[in-house]
Each structure stands twice: as structure tokens, then as C-alpha cells.
Amino acid sequence: MHFEGTFDIKAPRQKVWDFISIPNNVAKCLPDLQKLEVPAPDRFKATVKAGVGFVKGTFNFEFTMLDMQPPTHAKLSGHGSGTGSTVDLETAIDLSDLPDGGTRMAWKADAKVGGLIASVGQRLLEGAAQKLVSNLFACLKKQLEG
């Protein structure tokens, strides 16, 4: 599954960069965060609850920040498992200046889902994943502007 989007943030690029390069800030935007560990500045472990309606599962994720090119480009690679399923996530973020002093964030995400959810949840998976990923980025925007 591939998702992508672009949105503008009313904050300067450096501020956006500083914010998103801290695992704690990113983790706050994960759905229903249960637990967070940050063993290294570029790595964090998060336990989240995700799903649709009451169909929810607990996933243990390990995220790594890669290819950090301050303050323009970053990649976040995540690998999670739970509910008889696995999620492998690759996201990339590109930041650019806007004429009004704001920042444009272009993001891409590729998710590969395996196991139970992939095999029985086809009908819901894409919609649900799209929503989760969009919520994540919308939350980042909100936190930066708020």
C-alpha cells in the first residue's frame, strides 16, 4: 500500500525539523499510544492500539530514523507485530520553505501488512491504513501549529 500527501505548516522549517527529529514528538501522534521507550536518539519502541471501531489490536513497533538530512529530508522505518500480523512501514518526509515563512511537508508512506489482518481484512485495510497514516501527519501539523 502506498500513500502520500502534502501539507503546509505555519512554522519555519528549522522548527519543524527540530520537532520531528525527536522521537517523543512523533510517537505522541501514533494511534492510542500505550507505551514508549527511546533507547537511542534515532530509535524508539512504541506500543500502540490500532484498528477500526472495536476491531482493534495491540502492536509493538520499533522505529528507526534514517537518512537524516537536516532540515530537509528524513526517513522513518517501522516494523511492528501483533494480532497475528506484521506491519512494515517506510515513510519519507521532505521539507521545503514556503514564501510566507511556513514549511511544506511532502510525505510518502509504504506499508506492507502480513498475517491475519492482511488475509482477512482486505476490504477494510486500505481505508483504515490511509486514515491512520493521514491522522499521524495531521497530528504532527497540529502539534507544530498548536
Binding site: 484498528g51 472495536f54 476491531v55 482493534k56 489490536g57 494480532t83 491475519l116 489482518i117 482477512v120 481484512g121
Partner: peptide, 21 residues
Amino acid sequence: SKILAGGQSLIALMKLRLASP
């Protein structure tokens, strides 16, 4: 918590462990 009525969707999802009230 979750209401059980006919259980025709709920029980199936619980057995798959996709839902765990």
C-alpha cells in the same frame, strides 16, 4: 465492554482474535 446480541459478527471476530473485548 461489548454488547452480545446475536453474536453473528462479534463471535467470529473474537474467534479470529481481531476483536478482544
